[in-house]
Design a protein around this nucleic acid. Structure first.
Lengths: 348, 348
DNA sequence: AATTAGCACTCGATACCAAAGAGTGCTAAT
DNA sequence: ATTAGCACTCTTTGGTATCGAGTGCTAATT
């Protein structure tokens, strides 16, 4: 039902549409691609492909454009590709010149990535809730306020202030820090139960009140977790040059989806758990604002643990054959870099 | 040269244009506003106002639209206004429901602000470089890596990792932290000179190497300061509904300006030092991408020190009479909140 | 001297029509 | 199974006529 030539024609049609954003005609296909058949034959094949749901027409006498199903087939059969050497080089340089810190590195990388491919990059940044905790440290700020610093095994840190009733000094806090750090190993943020805190209080009875405050604050922090903005976007202004975004309504929709980021965050979170990159196309998003978009996303890892996701959002006719290898390469590179001694030395 | 009636007509013309985005005709002015003269008279006045540079025409037989000079006059004579009670209430609620931390509070506030007025909010966030330092604390992370936590007098913190050669333990670091905190009072990030570090080394000769690493890292951090992203944007998707943004080229320009944020950051930084709010209009930006925009910006203060800026970017015909009081109110409210015991208690 | 009725003029917006052109599906011939 | 040929569909483009909003100017009026 889907012989080689038909497949080739579908592939050529999609490739051509990706390149031009114009509906593809039988004439163009027979002239620009070597099928050694006249356009009428191709016309018959196109008709079949439309009936099978891989292509569609905007109106009765227009050329064909791919459907979601068409793109999906196209993407699924893409062979692992390489990216151009100069692009790989540029990304490498970007990493080496990036500023301090994980967040800043991601900002730099996604900005350059977007300008390279002219689509929008979207990023899920690491947070303290991934992985297990490693270090806790308390710093006395005011008489009644302490800054709590937490670090997980991936080296991602979080800080927040806690208000306390009891008077303590930094010496006390150092003792608490030491105890916490000792007891924290293997625990995640959410597994710090009431019982766990109670057992701590028994070890340091004189600082019971403070520990109570601390436990409550961390609990509240976990509750607020979802509110926390762990998502950013770069380079929409690069993408907006593409012909589909001459359509104001479409531009509005995509901007809205990027700002009300729930759906995108959800999709990225799915990609976090996948071993490979994830491609989403048009109707596969449960968001009408994204019906005309495609997304390629892949996770990056610190020491083999996925801690965040980099994605590329573009029009449905995005050049997947370039973007997929690109995003795989970039996430690998970022992960390696964030795990590297070099990064850690210069102050990650 | 500018009698009362003329002024009133100009004001009415600008108000009407702000409301409708349509060029204003003499007929509309004579009918909707009570000048008690026929349209022909108004026509004469409009002609004068155009010659004086306050109004302009799109083409020979069109109504008038305000020029930058017109808007400027209009804005400069605005009387201090109040905002509606329900809006004030909503902002207050937003603050109380905002998440932990300064950054998250600002994100919430700017999101709600944008949805209230349908323009884009832009925010300069506080950073460690403002104000003088108060506390430094070092935390041992790995054998050769420490996390440095700095806090300034406004309660804004920064963290970064430092790689060290010498073996130290947390006890050592506690001693260093204590010394640093003692010596830091009144110093700014940039005034930590080589001499200052040398004097520290003399007090703790056994940790000389570590202090050297630390000094160098902080120096590098200061160099990188400008790279740091201390700027964010919310609610462009609200604004894009306005009729001027049906023009794709304009949308592209404004988006580009928001992403290449240099010019905007510069303008906001000027507002940081001003006692009142700052309004910028069209040609007053040295950026062709912002020629059709207006900006109202004002700083927010922690304990009377300006530490950041909230701005509203809209089309040139933005409703300044609403936005100016609004932004003044919001920045005041945010500053008070960030300075308040309530905020500090619940974990700023 | 200020105001205004009246009018000619400009220019954009809208509608309509014709012609051109791109592309298809189908039929019949190869 | 392929394809030449053709009728048909629909969009695009350009031209033209018309409408109407709005102006500037002149001359009359207050």
């Amino acid at each position: 039902m889907m012989d080689t030539r038909k497949k080739k024609i579908l592939e050529a049609a999609i490739t051509h549409y990706i390149g031009t954003a114009e509906p593809v005609s039988s004439k163009v296909l027979s002239e620009k691609y070597r099928f050694d058949v006249r356009s009428a034959t191709i016309r018959n094949e196109l008709n079949d492909l439309e009936k099978e749901g891989y292509l569609s027409q905007l109106h009765a006498s227009s050329g064909r454009i791919p459907t979601d199903k068409g793109y999906r087939l196209f993407v699924d059969q893409l062979k692992p590709g390489n990216l151009q050497g100069d692009q790989a080089k540029l990304m490498k340089q970007t990493l080496q010149l990036a500023g301090y810190g994980v967040e800043q590195t991601l900002v730099q990388v996604s900005t350059v990535l977007s300008s390279l491919i002219n689509y929008t990059t979207i990023v899920l940044t690491p947070n303290i809730y991934q992985e297990t905790l490693k270090i806790a440290h308390l710093i006395l700020v005011d008489l009644d306020r302490i800054l709590v610093v937490l670090l997980n095994t991936a080296g991602i840190n979080a800080e927040f202030f806690v208000h306390i009733q009891d008077r303590v000094d930094q010496e006390d806090l150092n003792r608490v820090s030491q105890l916490l750090t000792k007891k924290l190993g293997g625990k995640s943020m959410t597994s710090l139960t009431d019982e766990w805190w109670l057992s701590l209080m028994q070890e340091l009875p004189d600082l019971k009140g403070m520990l109570k405050n601390l436990g409550e604050s961390i609990y509240q922090l976990v509750q607020q977790q979802t509110k926390k903005d762990q998502f950013f976007t770069r380079g929409f202004s690069n993408m907006i040059q593409l012909p589909e975004f001459r359509n104001i309504e479409l531009t509005q929709k995509v901007l809205t989806a990027l700002e009300e980021n729930k759906v995108l965050v959800a999709v990225l979170n799915e990609a976090l758990r996948l071993p490979e990159s994830k491609v989403s196309i048009g109707g596969e998003f449960f968001d009408h604002n994204l019906q005309e978009c495609g997304l390629v996303a892949s996770s990056y890892k610190i020491d083999d643990e996925p801690i965040g996701v980099i994605g590329v959002l573009g029009p449905k006719r995005m050049d997947y054959s370039v973007v997929v290898p690109m995003i795989q390469h970039v996430t690998k590179m970022v992960g390696d870099y964030l795990s590297s001694a070099h990064f850690k030395k210069r102050g990650g």
